[in-house]
Design a protein around this nucleic acid. Structure first.
Lengths: 140, 140
DNA sequence: GCTGTGATCTATGTTTACTAGAACAAGTAG
DNA sequence: CTACTTGTTCTAGTAAACATAGATCACAGC
């Protein structure tokens, strides 16, 4: 699996890496225990500076989604099977969700349409059933 | 109605103004036709530079949510009663929603919980029923 | 004419994003 | 033990973004 990065996008590169990893976790492609490429490897493969990758990985580490060790490199620390989120996360997520949902609403989408879109997006991540197989996935 | 701005927040000030206005539109507090304070008035009231307010209002204007005229000042251009969104908006919104939903998922919220939260947030905006009364709301 | 409005131009300072190099420490393989 | 890879940290520089500031113009209403 390769991280698609759009270097000309207005979204900062470190944010793109972060977002793609989070989406990989949500979709089950990157289950807990899966390895990501090392900071230097991803930087070399993507043609970007390893400090930029480090920022993305460090952000994921701070959020509790990634373990970074010299022994194992970058390893997914948690996924949806790993238990409920911290309260801090929930409150922050609600705030951001409120704004995003407000945008949909202001632009004319109905409650039903918005919920349908969210449902479809969640469904696209995979069924909300048993935990994914703990096979080791990788981004390289 | 006063825009709550947190000047020490990591969220840029212009983004906060934008987001609060969008939320006002979504909740019906700012229906189509409602007036916002002038750029200079909001800047003076908030203790910020009017260029910063101008950036927020211009962003809203570009998104089709605000009309800016010398005659009427800043007036809400649309709300949920004004018809469906542009396709461009929907595609962009989906992309952002996918990332936000992925975050909830990666941190351990179930499909059901996520949808429940979205539903609750949407409900808090007000019922998805008849258009709000077209009384002129104001942020001043 | 005066006042208030949005719009536009130039300029400055601070913060953020991204890049770069160097170095250190920990861990692994040969 | 050596060489290599790994994450981590420090310093430094450039470009872009954010916020500020002043000035000016055109338009509208009184």
């Amino acid at each position: 699996m390769i991280i698609p990065l759009v270097l000309t996008s207005e979204i900062p590169i470190y944010q793109q890496i972060h977002d793609r990893v989070v989406e990989g976790i949500a979709s089950g492609t990157l289950p807990v225990g899966a390895s990501l490429p090392s900071i230097r490897a991803l930087a070399a493969d993507s043609g970007i500076n390893f400090h930029t990758v480090n920022k993305a990985y460090d952000l994921l580490r701070q959020e509790g989604l990634l373990h970074l060790t010299r022994k194992h490199g970058a390893v997914i620390a948690r996924d949806h099977t790993s238990g409920p989120p911290h309260q801090d996360f929930v409150a922050d997520w609600d705030t951001r969700a409120r704004t995003l949902l407000a945008e949909a609403r202001a632009h004319g989408l109905s409650h039903g349409d918005i919920l349908d879109r969210c449902q479809a997006l969640l469904t696209a991540f995979g069924v909300d059933g048993p935990p994914s197989a703990p096979a080791s996935g990788s981004l390289a």
